[in-house]
Nucleic acid binder design. Structure first.
Length: 562
RNA sequence: GUCCCGAUAGCUCAGCUGGAUAGAGCAACGGACUUCUAAUCCGUAGGUCGGGGGUUCGAAUCCCUCUCGGGACGCCA
């Protein structure tokens, strides 16, 4: 679909480019010198017109004359016949401003109506395959706020990318191998024996959360004391498998309740079992990036532009998490993804350079991997920070959050800030049904529109045929502002996708909802008079469509009534 | 010590691939409900964009430096 705004912008850009070429002689620009990059953007200030370009400013250096002079010359060569431009002016230091015919915005609503749920969709992804890996929490406990933020961000990014025409897969990497898993087994064993009335201690490095007590209880319910006198290895293995299964199921269910579904759950252990980890180390060795020291195998720091070397296989022969992770990322590219996105907590940022370096060392393109580092979440309740510590088991879980504030508010709050900004999550605000809560503000706009259509139906009215409506009746400032903003959505969505920035959509839809509320407050829809009522009904429906599409991308529901 | 993220209105944050007079929400203050939902709207007030240098026609945005927060620097994951 060719969107109106993008089409107009592209048209003006083309016209400017050819004008600049045609003006080379007049401007004294050497034919060999390439034209500079310039922008055609929507100016912040409305009376600067619908579009503005900095082309004249960018040409000051090659043309060696004043920007306003250049602008005048450019305008002489400018052919804007196809662009719907009414007026061109030079302003400020040398910007060229374009004023379109005021009627242009009336072509927007039919576009929204035609596309409906697909309005805003684009093909910039060109079906390139992209994988988004996120949350990937250890199955050793419940999901916490960091996981929750990662879930909301990752899922929305994936939705945005898909909306932008990428072929997207959501993946959860299951850390079912390594030390933490041994600790889980030992912790489970302790809880199991405790449950059977025996004295046992959860190891200091183990998991002290209450949830494991419950898991042990469930285990006893299923297997009784059958494993009390079993050999410890057998007992631990059995307990571990049980706990992993229960934990993963719980994680899956919690995420589903949060609106997040994965395409692939990828087991770390499977990389060890299949020999992929060993094979990856062999490849690195073959490429000369491995050295042996103190009985361990190291990835040379020089392989990833670092001073330090990193252990990949310990002296005891056990590969490190890093080794498995390299194998995992190699596997991702082996599966044919062109773009691999990971969402990691700030505490993992030190890992980024190593991972990219390892890809480089494998002969893979490190730039095909993007690691989004998200900053920490701080929870506030009653104006106080809620202290959290996973080790002691003292932390607010995602389940509790969903219980307390619901999935909609939670999803919105987690994506309304950019990933690299610390997030202060105010629990009281998130669950307050008040004007302070941005989620309700947006949902309310959607519900209000639904209310209009309910009312319309009760009066026996019907939605107008979009082809017969006279949109030019929408002359009010509030109407025009609203329509104009609807035209922005396709570009907002595309930009948010390539920037991996769902918060842009959160801001956009909040702004859009505000414009609707202003309109709604100032003007009647039903009973506005024949033609005007028809036009406003379509305006309302288009607005509802875009709000709905945005909320959909953010994983927030769009209620019909509140 | 090295590296990463942040510092913008009273608070929480947008804006950051350089553009024209720096924005939003909340909080504050003053108004608007016989109306399609007042979970709303309208208005007022609020700023040395952490400090200092630099780059240029132009800097919140790029570079250097300093200060202050948070995080990372393990044969943990």
């Amino acid at each position: 679909m060719d969107y109106l705004l993008a089409g107009l912008r592209a048209g003006i850009e083309r016209a400017l480019r050819s004008a600049a070429e045609a003006a080379r002689d007049d401007l004294g620009i050497h034919p060999e010198v390439p034209l500079p990059e310039f922008t055609v953007e929507v100016p912040r200030e409305k009376n600067f017109g619908d579009f503005a370009t900095n082309l004249a400013l960018m040409l000051t250096k090659p043309a060696r004359r004043s920007p306003r002079q250049i602008a005048e010359t450019l305008i002489k060569h400018l052919n804007l016949q196809e662009c719907g431009v009414q007026q061109v002016t030079i302003a400020g230091p040398g910007f060229i401003n374009f004023q379109l015919h005021p009627e242009w915005i009336y072509r927007i609503l039919p576009q929204v109506e035609t596309a409906g749920p697909d309005y805003g969709r684009s093909r910039i992804g060109g079906s390139r395959r992209v994988q988004v890996e996120f949350v990937s929490a250890n199955p050793t406990g419940l999901l916490h706020m960091g996981n929750a933020r990662g879930a909301a961000l990752g899922d929305s990014m994936a939705s945005l990318l898909s909306f932008a025409g990428f072929d997207v897969a959501r993946e959860f990497y299951v850390n079912d191998a390594g030390h933490q898993i041994e600790n889980l087994a030992l912790s489970m064993e302790a809880r199991y024996l405790q449950e059977l009335g025996q004295a046992a201690e959860v190891p200091e490095q183990g998991y002290h959360g209450e949830d494991l007590i419950e898991t042990a209880r469930h285990f006893v319910g299923r297997h009784g004391d059958r494993y009390r006198d079993e050999a410890p290895e057998v007992r631990r293995e059995k307990l571990l498998q049980y706990a992993l299964d229960e934990k993963l199921t719980a994680i899956r269910e919690t995420l589903a309740a949060f609106g997040v579904e994965y395409d692939v759950w990828f087991s770390e252990q499977s990389l060890h079992d299949s020999g992929a980890v060993a094979e990856t180390v062999d490849i690195l060795r073959g490429r000369g990036h491995i050295l042996e020291k103190d009985g361990a195998l190291w990835l040379k720091g020089s392989a990833f532009g670092a001073e330090k070397d990193e252990v990949v296989v310990r002296a005891n022969g056990v590969p490190t998490y890093f080794a498995a992770d390299i194998a995992y990322h190699k596997n991702k590219f082996d599966r044919g993804f062109n773009w691999v996105i990971n969402i990691w907590g700030a505490d993992h940022h030190g890992h980024v350079a190593r991972m990219k370096g390892a890809l480089d060392a494998l002969g893979l393109d490190p730039d095909a991997l993007d690691v989004v580092i998200m900053q920490l979440v701080r929870l506030y309740r009653d104006g106080e920070i809620v202290r959290m510590s996973k080790r002691s088991g003292q932390y607010v879980t995602l389940d509790e959050l969903l219980e307390e504030v619901g999935p909609d508010a939670a999803r919105y709050f987690f994506v309304m800030r950019s990933a690299d900004s610390h997030l202060d999550f105010d629990l009281d605000l998130a669950k307050s049904r008040s004007n302070e809560n941005p989620v309700y503000y947006i949902q309310y706009a959607h519900a209000r529109i639904a209310g209009i259509f309910r009312q319309l139906g009760e009066r026996g009215g019907t939605l107008p045929d979009t082809a017969t409506v006279d949109y030019s009746l929408l002359q009010e400032e509030a109407e025009r502002a609203l329509i104009r903003r609807l035209a922005d959505f396709p570009e907002e969505a595309a930009q948010a996708a390539v920037d991996l920035a769902p918060h842009r959509i959160a801001h956009y839809v909040h702004d859009l909802a505000g414009l609707f509320h202003s309109f709604y407050n100032a003007h009647r829809v039903i009973g506005a008079g024949d033609g005007l009522e028809q036009a406003r009904l379509v305006l309302a429906r288009s607005t509802q469509t875009v709000i709905h599409n945005c909320l959909n991308l953010l994983g927030v529901t769009a209620p019909e009534r509140m």
